[in-house]
Structures are given as structure tokens and as C-alpha cells.
Computed example of a mutant assay.
Amino acid sequence: MASPTRTRRSMPSRLEILQMKLRRVERGGDRWALRWQAALAVIDVTIISFFIFGPFLRSGPSYLIIDYMIAVWIFAELLARIFAAGSLRAILKRPMTWIDLVILGTLLFPNALFNFAFLRAMRLWAIGESPLFAVILKRLGCHSYRDVVRASLNFLVFLFMVTGFVYTTFFYHQNGLVGFIDALYFTVATMTTTGFGDITLPGPLGKLTSVVTMIVGISLFVRLAQSIVRPYKVLYPCEACGLQRHEVDAVHCKACGHLLNIPNDND
């Protein structure tokens, strides 16, 4: 018969239970975890909306209050991720951790680090990587368009990042609405290689910004077009050769002939 001391030691402590729940919220696919992920996604969308429309609100008295409230929330998220991971080294290997650290710095020191505020748009990637994202697409019957949606999401992230950089670097002295629209207009015209030329960025930095925007913008457009045109394939690694993508009704791997057992999305 086990002693009471051993039984107590085998039972998880409150901190361990909390750690397991945080991991479940972060990576779980059950109904309880998805509800928490939905609530967190709503908060993330609200924060991103504030980042996008921040230039219109910067003159208001409540701007800094909301700014610091978001900083507290992101700091709490970082602490929760570190606690759930159980290792600071493991959490530092995630790109989103460094993105949130930079965003946190721009929120705590908005006047000194306003030039890096464009990085706040990268929080859109957190929504795309959530298990909730795949579940929503599946329930809407859009699972076959997952690559298209992710490519569109990457395009939007880059669009708002470049717009934010152009605005804070070249149009920050203008009024929020006028300057932001000019930055957005220049970014779209450059990414699509339309090049009307009515708005240009001065100096070597402006030219380099235009070059990078055109190169990356065209690449994202090609990626988006490929996602729309190419046939849908399921993501299922072959156990023999490691090939990732296969036709929906594939029985054997087209690379090595290994027998596949692709699950049905409707199950």
C-alpha cells in the first residue's frame, strides 16, 4: 500500500496544473482550449486594430493610456508563455517572442521607438499559427483554401509593416489621416509596380525602401497567385521519404510509392 507521502508527491501541484492548462490553451485542439483561443484571438484583433488606426488617435489624451494597457497585456502574455514552456531558452527560440519584445519596447517608449512601431503588424502571424485558425477554416468549409488564406495573411502583414515604416519614417510630420493614407497609397503603388510617381520617397533610404518593397511585394503576389491556381493538396508527411504534400485521394506516395493513410478531413 502506498504511503500518504508518496501519494502527495505524485499529485501535481497547483503550479503544475496551471502550467498544463496554459499549454493546453496554447496548443490544444479540444473545445475548452478553442474557446480560450477564440477569446485571445478577439483581444489580438482588437490590439492589431489599435496598431493600424493608431496614427489617427495619437493626438487624443487616451492614446497613451491604451498604449500602456496593451503593453501590460503583452508582458503578461510573455510571462505566461515562459511559464508554460518551463524554459526561458525554449521560449527565446520562438520568433514571436522576439517580435513581442520589440513591440513591448515600442509600447513602453512610444516617443523614442516610434520608428519601430511598424513591427506591431507582425502580431497578425500569431493568429495564423493558432490551432483555432485551422479549425475555423475547416468548419467554414474553406480548409482547401488554407494556403490561400495564409498567403493573403502574409501579404497583409507585409503591407501594413511597410505602410507603418513609410509613415513613421517619411510622413510622421503630417496629420495622422493624411500621412497614413499617403504611406498606404505609396506602398500599394510600389508593391503592385504601378509606380504612378506622384508620391516618392526622398533620399537613398527612400530608394532602398522602394526597391525592397517591390521585390518582396512581387514575391508575395506570386506566392498568392500560386496558392490560388495550383490544385489543393493535403499536408501529410510520408513516413518513408518525408514528402509533405499529396493529393486528397492519394493512396501511395508519388515520390517513393509508400502506402499512405491520409485521414479524412470530414471526420
Rank of each mutant, 00 (worst) to 15 (best):
T168Q: 12
A84T: 03
G105D: 00
G105L: 05
F133E: 03
M69D: 08
G86P: 07
V102K: 01
M122S: 15
A85K: 11
I74Q: 08
S144I: 04
N154L: 12
S130T: 01
Y63F: 14
R81Y: 02
M96I: 14
W98H: 08
F133W: 07
F114L: 08
G164Y: 08
P110A: 00
T106N: 01
S87W: 00
R150E: 09
P131L: 01
A90D: 10
F114E: 10
I65D: 10
W73C: 09
S152T: 05
P110H: 00
I103M: 05
C142T: 07
W73R: 09
F160I: 13
R94P: 03
L104Y: 05
L159V: 11
R58W: 04
L124P: 12
L57F: 14
C142I: 10
K138D: 15
G141S: 04
A121E: 15
V149H: 09
A85D: 07
W73M: 12
A134D: 14
I99E: 03
Y145E: 04
P110L: 01
R139F: 04
L156M: 14
F109Y: 04
S87C: 04
A71M: 02
F155C: 04
E77C: 12
D67K: 06
F158Y: 15
L101T: 00
I127E: 08
A117C: 03
S62H: 10
M122F: 15
P61F: 04
L79E: 13
S59G: 13
F114T: 12
A90H: 05
N154I: 06
C142F: 14
G164L: 09
L78W: 11
R139A: 09
L124T: 14
I91D: 10
T106P: 05
I65F: 08
I103W: 02
G60V: 10
I91W: 02
L108C: 05
E129I: 08
V72S: 09
G86C: 04
V166R: 10
R139V: 03
L64G: 06
F75C: 05
L64H: 05
F155S: 11
R139L: 11
L137F: 03
F116W: 14
S152M: 13
I82T: 14
R58C: 04
S144C: 06
L92V: 02
A85P: 02
I66W: 13
G164H: 10
W73Q: 07
F83C: 12
F118K: 10
I65E: 08
T163N: 09
A76L: 14
M69Y: 11
H143E: 11
T97D: 00
L78E: 13
P61A: 08
D100K: 13
V102C: 03
